[in-house]
């Protein structure tokens, strides 16, 4: 079942959404990070300066999910594009199209900001998130992450 546009509103985050966001994140990750989300809100939500976007999905007065992204110039030497930094949907509200609506809304913000590409970075064996992004038509970017233990 897809989330109907009448039931669901995707809008910029407000300060009063933070408790719900912290709760959704804690439910997913098992760690409550109030300070971290205050900082994210300050950086991506409160600061009205484009091109940072922090959007929430509101349904019947409650918050069912959120997405954060930003347009960045010359990241890794590539032309400006929109980066999705995180998306989360409340487990009980999943598979009804909310993730898709959030990503679509963020992509519209990116397009309005003048870019024509969206990217994200994720752990490659996180099959849930990976399958979601794949379902949205996202393919591998010409970027690879490398790492090394510091000896």
């Amino acid at each position: 079942m897809q989330a109907q546009s009448a039931d669901l509103l995707v809008r910029p985050v407000r300060a009063r959404d933070l408790d719900s966001i912290i709760a959704i994140d804690a439910q997913i990750t098992g760690i409550e990070k109030a300070e971290y989300w205050q900082e994210r809100f300050h950086r991506y939500g409160e600061r009205k300066r484009q091109p940072c976007f922090f959007l929430v999905a509101e349904c019947d007065g409650g918050i069912d999910g959120f997405i954060i992204g930003e347009v960045r110039d010359w990241e890794f030497g590539t032309p400006a594009c929109g980066w999705v930094f995180g998306i989360s949907v409340r487990p009980e509200a999943r598979l009804s199209g909310i993730g898709t609506r959030l990503l679509d809304a963020l992509c519209n913000c990116f397009k309005n900001a003048g870019v024509s590409k969206v990217r994200t970075l994720l752990v490659f064996d996180d099959m849930l998130v990976m399958t979601f992004y794949r379902s949205q038509g996202m393919m591998a970017a010409p970027i690879i992450t490398l790492e090394r233990n510091l000896e």
Binding site: F124, M127, M130, T131, G137, A140
Partner: peptide, 22 residues
């Protein structure tokens, strides 16, 4: 191998059909 597996595991038949359509 690990990269290949992650790619194959994350792409469903429905996603492939959409890719073909696109």
């Amino acid at each position: 191998d690990e990269t290949a597996k992650a790619v194959f595991k994350s792409i469903t038949i429905a996603t492939m059909l959409r890719l073909i359509e696109r």
